[in-house]
Design a protein around this nucleic acid. Sequence first.
DNA 1: TTTAGTAAGTGTACAATTTACAATAAGGTA
DNA 2: TACCTTATTGTAAATTGTACACTTACTAAA
Lengths: 243, 243
Amino acid sequence: MGLSNYISVDCVIFGFDFEKLNVLLVDRTLTDNETGDVLFTDHTLTGNHIYEDETIENAAHRVLFELTGLQNVYLEQFKIFAHPDRLKKPNDRQWLLHDGRNPDVRIVSVGFFALLSVRDVTLEWKGRTVKWVPYHEIGELAFDHNEILEGAIEALRNKTKHEPIGFELLPEKFTLSQLQKVYEIILDTEFDKRNFRKKVARMKYLIPLDEKQTGVAHKPARLYMFSREVYEKTRKDFFDFWV
Amino acid sequence: MGLSNYISVDCVIFGFDFEKLNVLLVDRTLTDNETGDVLFTDHTLTGNHIYEDETIENAAHRVLFELTGLQNVYLEQFKIFAHPDRLKKPNDRQWLLHDGRNPDVRIVSVGFFALLSVRDVTLEWKGRTVKWVPYHEIGELAFDHNEILEGAIEALRNKTKHEPIGFELLPEKFTLSQLQKVYEIILDTEFDKRNFRKKVARMKYLIPLDEKQTGVAHKPARLYMFSREVYEKTRKDFFDFWV
DNA sequence: TTTAGTAAGTGTACAATTTACAATAAGGTA
DNA sequence: TACCTTATTGTAAATTGTACACTTACTAAA
């Protein structure tokens, strides 16, 4: 099974740690073959070429599995990146050449974003170091990966406003304060606690459990679950573009 | 300037005629070179390969211009179609072979949808007949074009719910009943006329004109315009996924 | 065991929006 | 002039949005 050497996927993997939104980045360090000097070092998103007989969704799930060991992760295609010059910055050309690839071949990359609650992650991938970096601390990335990241954030924001995907960034059981925090971080805003809860109380698909937080140095909060089943059954389509 | 022979764009061009949502389709008829017999005839969406140095957005605008002569059309990338078997139905292979193309090369296609008010359209494109077909009357299309069409409709519905793109399907000046009809058709629902107008009256970016319809056999309706400028200035981001 | 610290949980009044519902007005056409 | 067609408009009740502050339940430290 060969590789399709002109299509790739790039995954923006978001992980929420109850405080910040993080993104999984991979170190990219190019060293001179002879002297061993470090020529440059920076970061990339996580991506892969796809196999010839593979769907792009599969390729994206594969990346995700290799990195996190997780299979059932929220993953969504959001945009294609295909600018003719997207791989043509000097460092990027050098890196591709070093890797035995032709930097003049136009590569179309399909952007995906994934959502998960931060957990332990395989800390190596193809011999490169992988780490969580807070979204706001991400500097200049390799290739067009800053553009892909911004596209992912925008897609995440838009989707979050209209569909219940915030839950994907939390563990199965979570508190209302954690849920509120997710939305505040993604939408870059703050909500009134009482009003947020009043709104939330109307959502039939947010199931209160008979369980509480443990081990916290304050009144323990009740735990909730999201039920996609109830959501699908009770959701109404409606019309809200105005405002 | 060569062609990238593995990337293409497919455009779902929606046209509204105040009654129905239509899609621009192109006839595809394969005739036997020797006998002249018609081997099969069906329809495709409108698509194109992209040039090597061209962005995909440019390629999509090019398709649109060739077909409609229009330059400033609402156009949006919505999904990529890349299934390994997407061009492998027997008729499709035959068509590609006849056209001198290799049906075994995997072609990634970027799906776009365009919105416009139905107007005169160039009725020929590369020697093939082009016509508006009401969305609900579209049967089986070539390649994976039914899938692309459904993807486009879904993207159109979603976007319509949250952003003011319904206007793109109307002429510059339109009546409130026409606007209501656009939304009813896209969202496949019906609105109460008084409540619809009450809601609409709150949108500052819907500008009432001192002009009325002419030539209609009933009380002429006032004309309105959409101001994207006012919309951008007054829009608030908010949060409505729950229902 | 007492105290301090921390986040959880809760109600009310007012404003804005949604919803359901039907009669009159203004043009053309016969 | 009568008729046909679509445009235009209001009101009351229910729901939702908004602004705002105190009490509760737990841990940790004294």
